[in-house]
Write a protein that binds this DNA or RNA. Structure first.
Length: 285
DNA sequence: CACCATGTTCCTTG
DNA sequence: CCAAGGAACATGGT
């Protein structure tokens, strides 16, 4: 599911319903998710623990256990297709398709489903420790920081923004949108962007992410995503979660459709093996 | 069958 | 050391 706004929306929801949840038993149906730890050691670390509160860093969820400090939090990354939700009562958890991990409590089960199994659960915080600044934290992410990471670098601006050690939490969809709204061509070299351009980029990043979180927290979301299509992620292209949220993207996945600003057909190219959408008239190189 | 998909990690090359 | 580029991971949808 995963970019910063979706993970943050999930965090807020989980933090409100999972605090105090005591893990009585741990099921690991896809051992690859807890790699490279062994299921046995992982289970031993989680069993009997209580969820104290849940934080987020970039696209990672941090589940703090027991009294919130001392030991490492449980670090969860959802990969491309991870989903987390509670199943109540004694429903048959075993029949859930692609169930990867289940934390069984007294009267409910926290289920982790992951079709492609790119997600990861670990107590190793090193990937989190290497993350760049949180884009919504004004203390660490500001126009000067953007200038600093762009200075002297020939890297394509799209690649730079997606690099988690430079800025935390941006992914392919939001970067496409952010570059369109900032009128920057995705191939543009970071060092060639003017101070003014970087200021616009900075503002657009904050605005785009905040608005997406706002939309997520005010919607009725389908965490399990058991319906057709996505239902929740990226706010219902299929219109499942809310039919009024079908017009979310300006450029992402809109190849050939008219630009919302100038009506030119949106183009698609591949950058670093990821689909890249842009308006050739609004985003000049 | 071919190609596409919200992501990260690891390896190679310069 | 750093940057860039690519393959790999696993599964489903179109």
């Amino acid at each position: 599911m995963p970019e910063l706004p979706e993970v943050e929306t999930l965090r807020q929801y989980l933090d409100s319903v999972a605090r105090g949840f005591c893990v009585q038993n741990v099921l690991i149906k896809k051992p690859r998710i807890v790699r490279p730890e062994s299921d046995r050691i992982f289970k031993r670390q989680l069993t009997g623990q209580t969820i104290h509160h849940i934080d987020r860093r970039g696209k990672f969820l941090l589940m703090h256990l027991n009294h919130g400090s001392s030991s490492n939090p449980l670090v969860i990354h959802l990969g491309m297709t991870g989903r987390l939700f509670f199943r109540h009562g004694s429903d048959a958890v075993h029949s859930i398709p692609h169930l990867a991990v289940a934390l069984e409590g007294k009267d409910r089960v926290l289920c982790y489903v992951d079709v492609r199994s790119f997600g990861r659960w670990t107590f190793d915080t090193s990937p989190v420790d290497r993350m760049g600044p949180e884009p919504l934290d004004a203390d660490v992410f500001h126009p000067d920081y953007l200038q600093q990471i762009c200075h002297g670098r020939s890297i394509k601006i799209k690649d730079l923004l997606m690099h988690q050690e430079r800025v935390a939490g941006l992914g392919n969809i939001y970067v496409n949108e952010i570059l369109f709204l900032s009128r920057l061509h995705p191939l543009r070299q970071a060092q060639s962007i003017s101070k003014r351009g970087l200021t616009v980029l900075f503002k657009t990043i904050r605005k785009t992410l905040s608005e997406a979180i706002q939309l997520g927290t005010t919607s009725r979301l389908d965490w399990e995503g058991s319906g057709h299509g996505d239902g929740f992620f990226y706010f219902g292209r299929s219109g499942q979660a809310d039919p009024n949220m079908t017009e979310r993207f300006h450029v992402y996945d809109r190849e050939g459709q008219p630009c919302s600003k100038c009506a030119s057909p949106i183009l698609r190219m591949v950058i670093s093996q990821r689909g890249t959408y842009y308006c050739p008239k609004c985003q000049l190189l």
